[in-house]
Design a protein around this nucleic acid. Structure first.
Lengths: 325, 325
DNA sequence: CTTTACTACTTACACGTGTCAGCATAGGTC
DNA sequence: GACCTATGCTGACACGTGTAAGTAGTAAAG
């Protein structure tokens, strides 16, 4: 094996017959440097010819900051809606020259601090908040922090909070419009989902005063919750998501109720199973493309130290009317 | 702002009253170096006290290899089963000192080569194969490549291929045991899923000769497929996954058939919606913890240049019997 | 002719780490 | 006392990059 050395900018410089600095200036289009078109082309040609790719490590070491956007993925069940958004986000950030990397597990693997300290990312996208110390440490290290969801009061906007709230609001709104006065809220069983459930519930509360019950993903136990709601005179259920909604549907069926005549149900996410349910599930869907684009511009703004753009959440959330409510 | 400099190993050395080299030896437990317990403790104490975290960039630059395992996530819909596995994998690799990072989008964002050349990961975990040039380039750069799924013949074991095959086999086996001779295979509509669908179908073919039909996630169109199978005398369906299975269920219901009397269905994944379906869906589930552990040891082995361990796939795949088949 | 200004570069340093070669000191052997 | 070996540590270099500072050469201005 003939020593498979990495191709460095020095190789490019040698081939183009210029200094290494010139190569750097050309490839980074450094402003305030004048390079003749002739050498410019020679450098570009040489770089392409050699298949040169700059070392992220060296670049990061030098500049003190990498072009990585680190997304800390909590350990809650990541549905394919979220997966979709992350994919779109990755594409959007790539267009800005940023590399999106996701790290699953803000669990006890190792202190998350280790991860971001090691990577020195340009920005960190997190869903939950950090401790004050950690936040301060990141600020000091020059890492732009974007907290997407819940968090204590602070400078950081919580980018997803408004959309999540709006989801609950739209659910309640839809059921009200279709004539339901007493509403119920089907809260998820998994405590890890609380972070999403709280803002959604808050949104529903802004319009109605729903009776909240926890609904496990199990027909028999869901039936108990449904029976409770019936006793309360509830006729319409806002479910945390489509899966919980399916459980409510199953619970109602167990009790011999018909949907939506006896009990209307509306979910969230529009998962494939929603349209295949009996009856097909009315649900609230999010425009993942728009959301990803907004997150991307927010992150880019945060990296640049500019304030976050505002999100016109209205067109983001849409009700998909089917037969369950 | 008082110049928030990064804490380097030099800071630790100064505080511990030793040289930087000693610090490095202590913290990395470099073999073949003798350090007195006294200074060892002083160094560790100093490092902890300062909250020192080594710069991944510098370390990577020096050693030519980072401790990152890069997982290239294709753009197929990533269900929460997969999300789970990735989470477990991350934990398992962390225990080995490796940092798991996922990059969504092996799409046209930017040549994937850019990503791995930039990061210089210890290993790349991919689901699809690379071009020969790229494979060779990675080998030359010393990046351990693990191809998980489909790929042309080559040295790389395709780690997930056997389990996927086994899934299809178990489905067919279960339906045969319960008395179904003519089987059908419900193939997913989304072409991106082909990579998983092919080995699963191959597994089913090893036991039966199923009639393959594509089933869109739509009750009406699924009904057409079901009608076709009925005409063929098929009584049991192996579905690509639970969602496709739900579509088959919906199609059968549309035609007024009863499940499993007229048509038995078995899915894959055991998604939450499966147990909530009418009737509850029989399905095949994978032990995500075991799978993640196997992938982890495979990757660790690949990084160390050792051959991959074999997987006892038998206990990995399990049939969850419910009422649909 | 000198000064200034600009173009098109190059030289040199720093980023933080791993590691090789070297250097004292101490203890044992002949 | 001379020689060797092991212990415990330090000095110095290289990894590949970005960029501030400097330098020839040319052109315009005074």
């Amino acid at each position: 094996m003939p020593d498979p050395r990495r191709i460095t900018s020095a190789d490019v410089a040698r081939r183009a017959g210029v200094s290494r600095a010139t190569v750097s200036y050309v490839l980074n289009a450094t402003p305030g440097q004048s390079i003749s078109p002739a050498t410019r082309d020679r450098v570009l040609q040489a770089a392409a010819g050699l298949g040169y790719a700059p070392s992220a490590a060296a670049r990061t070491l030098r500049t003190g900051r990498s072009d990585v956007v680190l997304c800390l993925i909590p350990d809650w069940p990541i549905g394919n809606e979220m997966g979709n958004t992350l994919g779109n986000l990755s594409t959007a950030l790539a267009r800005e020259g940023l590399t999106f990397l996701a790290h699953p597990g803000s669990r006890d693997d190792r202190p998350i601090a280790e991860v971001w300290k090691a990577i020195t990312p340009a920005a960190v996208l997190s869903f939950t908040d950090f401790s004050d110390d950690e936040t301060e440490a990141m600020r000091a290290a020059g890492v732009a922090l974007v907290v997407a969801l819940l968090g204590r009061a602070g400078r950081h906007g919580r980018e997803l909070e408004v959309p999540q709230t709006l989801i609950g609001r739209r659910q309640a709104d839809h059921l009200s419009r279709t004539g339901h006065q007493r509403l119920g809220y089907a809260y998820p069983d998994d405590p890890r989902l609380q972070i999403f459930a709280e803002p959604r519930l808050a949104g529903a509360r802004a319009l109605a005063e729903p009776v909240v019950r926890t609904v496990p993903l199990d027909a028999a136990r869901a039936a108990e919750a449904v029976a409770g709601w019936r006793a309360d005179g509830v006729t319409g259920i806002c479910a945390y998501n489509d899966e919980v909604a399916l459980a409510v549907l199953a619970g109602a069926r167990t009790l011999g109720l018909t949907t939506p005549a006896d009990l209307a149900v509306i979910g969230v996410d529009d998962i494939p199973a929603a349209r295949l349910a009996v009856p097909p599930l009315t649900t609230v869907t999010t425009d993942q493309g728009l959301l990803a684009a907004h997150l991307a511009t927010t992150i880019v703004a945060a990296v640049g130290g500019r304030p976050a753009p505002s999100l016109s959440a209205d067109e983001l959330i849409r009700v998909v009317v089917r037969e369950s409510g």
